[in-house]
Each structure stands twice: as structure tokens, then as C-alpha cells.
């Protein structure tokens, strides 16, 4: 057989192998395997604990892990408040046919959209007060005038945030998310949706 033919046969065999591997061939089930409900609860337990690497174990094709640490006084505070806000509740039983599963979950989080207006107003109020007091560490005097420094302005925003977070429930949102899962390679994996991803990240509507 010529090399050409051999190569052709090799390609045919390869194609066959690829096709077979793409098929949903039932695999034999050995031992105790997690139910989809357990996957959902473990996922949200991890999220609520701030263990996003652990949460990634239950996700298909996406990661919630942060590639860098949050920087900035204000951002760090905001992130901490966001993590503290998480809670969830399963709504009803999980429906499953052995390969696909779905369920509904109520997820509560700090909604940055609700926070925005009050934060602006309180920051402005504090800023005006500090200017009139010429508060040290926040203002600078230039040309017979007192104005806020950039560092001072960010500290003010952080103080305003702390003040608002004394009653955080006002800024929490609870939404129902439909969780879809697929059984793959011996475990259930959750498909992350855009709206859940954004809720976990605070739901702030950016111009992105």
C-alpha cells in the first residue's frame, strides 16, 4: 500500500476516533457520585464563604477566581462588603434526567447600583464639611483656597461607604437564577450565566 493510502487510512481512523469521543456514550457508573443538588449547594456555599477557587470546581468553562488582589482603600472595603452580603436559597427540587439538570436559586448580594446615589450624596456632604473645617489629611491649601486632595477624596468615599454599610440590607438585591447543569466526566458541572456572574460581582452597570 502506498504511503498516500496509508496516510489516508490513518486520517480516516483518526476521524473515527474523534467522532466516537464526541458521542454521548453512557459510561458505567461506579460508586457514589454527587447529585446535582449537592453541586449547586456546594457551589453557593463556596461563593458565600468567598472560596472562589473551590467554587470553580463546580463550574464548566469559566472561573470566578480573581487573578489579582483588589487594590485601593475604597475598592477593598467595597469588596469586603460585597462578600459579606452573599446568601442563597434553593427554590424547589432539582429536576434531572441523569445528564441534564436544572433548578432555581434565590441569590442575595450587595447591589452596587442601589448604593451609587446615596454614596455620591453622602460623600459630597462629608467633603463639604471637611473643606469648611480644613480637615487635616484631607485638604490642601493653595492660593488662599482650600480644596480636597485626591487621597482625601478617596478616603471620604470610603468613610461614606462605611457609614452606609451600617444598614446594608437597604442595598441588597435578591434575584432568582435558573441554574443549568450537565453531567460530564463523572460529575455535574454548572453553566455560569452572565446575570449570575454579574450579581456575584455586584451587578454594577458599567459602560462595558
Amino acid at each position: 500500500m502506498t504511503i498516500v493510502k496509508r496516510t489516508f487510512c490513518l486520517l480516516i481512523a483518526l476521524a473515527a476516533m474523534v467522532s466516537l469521543s464526541a458521542c454521548d456514550m453512557p459510561m458505567s457508573i461506579v460508586g457514589d457520585l454527587p447529585e446535582p443538588e449537592e453541586t449547586v449547594t456546594c457551589f453557593f456555599d463556596s461563593v458565600c464563604e468567598g472560596d472562589f477557587e473551590g467554587a470553580d470546581e463546580y463550574l464548566s468553562g469559566v472561573s470566578l477566581s480573581m487573578r489579582d488582589k483588589v487594590t485601593g482603600v475604597f475598592s477593598q472595603k467595597l469588596y469586603d462588603y460585597l462578600l459579606k452580603s452573599y446568601s442563597y436559597q434553593l427554590k424547589g427540587p432539582v429536576k434531572s434526567d441523569g445528564l441534564d439538570a436544572e433548578c432555581a436559586v434565590d441569590f442575595t448580594y450587595l447591589d452596587l447600583n442601589l448604593l451609587n446615589e446615596d454614596l455620591k450624596n453622602l460623600s459630597t456632604k462629608i467633603g463639604k464639611s471637611y473643606i469648611s473645617e480644613a480637615k487635616e489629611g484631607y485638604v490642601e491649601k493653595k492660593d488662599d483656597a482650600i480644596s480636597l486632595t485626591d487621597e482625601g477624596a478617596e478616603k471620604i468615599a470610603a468613610e461614606a461607604l462605611d457609614s452606609l454599610m451600617a444598614t446594608p440590607e437597604k442595598y441588597y438585591s435578591t434575584k432568582t437564577f435558573k441554574m443549568r447543569m450537565k453531567y460530564s466526566f463523572g460529575k455535574w458541572l454548572i453553566y455560569m450565566t452572565d446575570d449570575l456572574f454579574e450579581a456575584i460581582s455586584g451587578g454594577f452597570e458599567t459602560n462595558d
Partner: peptide
């Protein structure tokens, strides 16, 4: 998140 925080 960083974009959201920066926006706020």
C-alpha cells in the same frame, strides 16, 4: 469588579 468599583 475593579471596573465596577472604579465606576462607583
Amino acid at each position: 469588579f475593579q471596573n465596577a468599583s472604579n465606576g462607583l
